[in-house]
């Protein structure tokens, strides 16, 4: 496990990822507009502006949408922030305006652009929109090992996930978070059993101590990459994401018709 983790991020650090992110802001935003429709085209577009030096690694082969779900206050955003920029804020309030966070990772020699989607607090009264689930390739279902009730809700989250994701092979990872706390109510074995019963991955982690957080996401990505058909550039012609970057089909418009334009 350790070897894999190290290999996974030889040059990738939170700091470098972050500074790169800043440099390529506009670029990345463009990418995400088109991320769902055709990953490969997107990767090209976006990476045209990167140089090998910028990246210190290969160009992403694909872009993945990862959901983080589970009951309120189980540490979903903490896991995400720890993974993205290696921070932890014990008094974290809901982060206003943050929709998803992204990071480029290298897993098993493959470079991948991850978009990790927060619930934006909509999990609180189980009001996540079906739209949130669309086109996800992976999901992290989090519970708090010190609150049994959050563990008991994991099955309902799995059901909701199955109801809304539009493919059956989405890779799921159940995460027991807050292992740093003493008053544990859910044992590791119980977590493992639940995961086995639902054929999902399982890990216990601590966002506070940065324990198993990287591994959690990297393992998930590893399994997504191992699932044929889940992430490859499946061309889905005809799907349109709106943006100003769409090629102008000027030959179809009326703009260039003039009396001099003898077409007929």
């Amino acid at each position: 496990m350790e070897g894999k983790a190290k290999q996974a991020t030889p040059t990738e650090t939170a700091a470098s990822a972050r500074s790169r992110t800043k440099r390529c802001q506009a670029n990345l935003s463009e990418i995400f507009k088109t991320s769902c429709s055709s990953p490969v085209v997107m990767a090209h577009k976006k990476l045209d502006d990167y140089t090998e030096d910028d990246l210190g690694q290969d160009q992403p082969i694909t872009s993945l949408k990862i959901l983080v779900i589970g009951e309120s206050n189980v540490g979903k955003s903490s896991l995400m922030n720890r993974f993205i920029d290696d921070t932890f804020d014990p008094n974290m309030a809901n982060t206003i305006g943050v929709d998803y966070r992204s990071r480029v990772v290298n897993v098993d020699g493959q470079t991948v652009q991850l978009g990790i989607w927060d619930t934006a607090g909509q999990e609180r009264f189980r009001t996540l929109t079906p739209t949130y689930y669309r086109n996800a390739q992976g999901a992290v279902i989090v519970y708090d090992v010190t609150r049994r009730q959050t563990f008991e809700r994991v099955e309902q989250w799995l059901q909701e996930l199955d109801a809304y994701v539009n493919r059956t092979d989405v890779v799921k990872m159940i995460v027991g978070n807050k292992t740093d706390l003493k008053n544990r109510e859910v044992s590791r074995e119980e977590g493992q059993q639940l995961a086995r019963r639902h054929s999902t991955l399982f890990i216990e982690a601590s966002a506070l101590e940065n324990d198993n957080v990287q591994v959690c996401f990297e393992d998930l990505v590893y399994h997504i990459l191992q699932t044929p058909g889940l992430w490859e550039a499946r061309v889905q012609p005809g799907r349109i994401q709106l943006g100003d970057n769409n090629p102008s089909l000027s030959e179809m418009t009326w703009n260039c018709i003039s009396p001099n334009c003898s077409l007929l």
Binding site: T21, K22, C24, Q25, L28, S29, F32, N81, D85, T87, D89, T95, G97, V98, D99, Y100, R101, S102
Partner: peptide, 11 residues
């Protein structure tokens, strides 16, 4: 803003 444009402070 896109998430990349949001600079979180205190980290």
């Amino acid at each position: 803003p896109d998430p990349e444009e949001i600079i979180l402070d205190d980290d």
